Structure formats: structure tokens, C-alpha cells
Amino acid sequence: MIGRFFTDTGQVRSHNEDAGGAYKNDKGQILAVVADGMGGHRAGDVASQLAVTILHNRWKETLSVESPDQAETWLKEAIHEVNQKILEHSHENEECRGMGTTVVVSICSESFVSVGHIGDSRVYLADSDGFRQITEDHSLVNELVRSGQISEDEAEHHPRKNVLLKALGTDEQVTADILTVEFEEDNRLLLCSDGLTNKVSGDELAEIADYEGDWENFGHNLIDLANDRGGEDNITLVIVHNTQAPEKEGVEEC
């Protein structure tokens, strides 16, 4: 299994509030994470990096994940811990008050993927059924689309597009969406922040389904595309490819 992590500050922001990584255990399973931080005084990058560090540390203590039930329990408990630690940090550090972060985190095995998420960072899956988004944005605009108040086209240019209904570190109690899907040989998973999806279309992202080249090139090409179209936000993605072929290089980490 191959995991690749990419992040870029973009063309406008002065610093990167995204964080993430792809971390492989001794069983060859991968923990993939993308977090998009928010908050003033650089606190967004504190929240997102704190989330990734906590998840990575828990993963290093996990020898293997044997079943979807075990994976989903792991995600629920880990995301709860992240939420509490971000809240504690913001209460103890005045400059971090009000900070928060989105998170998408996936446990990838050779037969299944379990995903936990909060916010509007996304996970896409390419399998025998095609290419599709498997997470639902926790955003005001997505709720307006779901309730039929606006169309998907209107959502693309809505003035409140960036308003989140859920984030980590902003409330004592927050419930992550958790799901499991099959992950067969040659399936591909894409995790990304909205800095990518706001600039690159679903059809362009879907090229991951049939790509046979170097994943380093694919990831950097997506970042270049988002930057060429303005790059107003930070851009972060993780690619996981369920392949039995031996890796030439190690997993990319944050």
C-alpha cells in the first residue's frame, strides 16, 4: 500500500494552517490525515498540527487494526481526544482562543477503509463503482443544498461558502461522522482540504481513478493546478493506493 502526503501554502496566505500526513504501521496499514485549521494569530496552524500530532502518536501505539468495528472505535476515541486537547490548549493560551480545525482521518487496510471526519475537508474513493465523495461537508452551504434551498451550482459561489457547522476544538461535545467502505486491490483514496476542492473540479480529481504514473507527479500537478487558478487558500492532500506492488520509497509524512 502506498501513501503520499502533499501540502502547499498557496499563492496568497502568508503561512500554512493545513497539516496532515500518511503513516504506515508494521502491518502495512496506513493512517491518512488532513486537517485545515482556523483562528486568528496563527492559531489555526496550532490546532491543525495538534490534531495531526495526537492522531499520529496514537497510531504509533497501535500495532494493527483487525476489523472495521475496531477501526471505527479507534477513530471515535481519537477524534474525541483531539477535540479535548484543542479545547484545553485554547483555554490555557489566550492567543489561541477560538481556534479550531477540520479533520478527515482514514484507517486504510488491504480490505477496508474506515473514515472519521468533521468539517468540510473531504474524502473521495475510486473503486469499481467509479469515483465519488464519501464524506458529507459539515457546512452551511451543504445544508442549504441538501434541503433544496440552493442548487449545487449556486453553492459554488455562495457568499457564506466557508461557514462550518462543525469543527474540532470549538465545542465540548462534537460528534464525528464515521463510516467504513471496502478497499480492494488497486482502489485509490483521496483526502483533501477545501483549498484543493475549491479550485479543482470533480472531473479533474476523478483522474486519480485510472492514473498509472508516479503519485508524486500526480499530487504536485493537483497543487500546481489549484495555484494556477489563484491559490487563495492552503492546499493539502493525501493519496492512498491499495497496491500489492513493492514501494520504491517510504510513506510521506508531515
Rank of each mutant, 00 (worst) to 15 (best):
H138I: 09
Y124C: 04
R42P: 09
V113R: 00
R146P: 05
I118H: 06
L164V: 02
V141A: 02
E72M: 11
G148K: 03
H91T: 12
F131K: 01
K161D: 07
M99D: 02
T243K: 14
D120V: 07
T170H: 13
K27H: 14
L164Y: 01
L50Q: 00
G37D: 00
H56W: 09
A206H: 01
E247F: 13
A47T: 02
L144N: 03
L190T: 02
V123E: 04
Q149T: 15
H241V: 09
Y23G: 02
A51E: 01
G119D: 00
I178Y: 05
S111I: 14
T102D: 01
R146M: 14
S201Q: 04
H117E: 06
E185T: 08
D203V: 10
L50C: 08
E81V: 10
R4L: 11
G213K: 01
I150V: 06
E154R: 15
I208C: 07
N217F: 15
G98Y: 03
L165V: 05
S90W: 05
L31P: 02
T243H: 08
A167C: 06
I2G: 15
L179A: 13
T135P: 02
A155C: 04
V52P: 03
K161L: 08
T101Y: 10
M38F: 04
V141N: 00
W74F: 04
L189N: 08
L165Y: 07
S121P: 03
I178R: 05
T236L: 09
E212P: 04
S67G: 10
V123M: 14
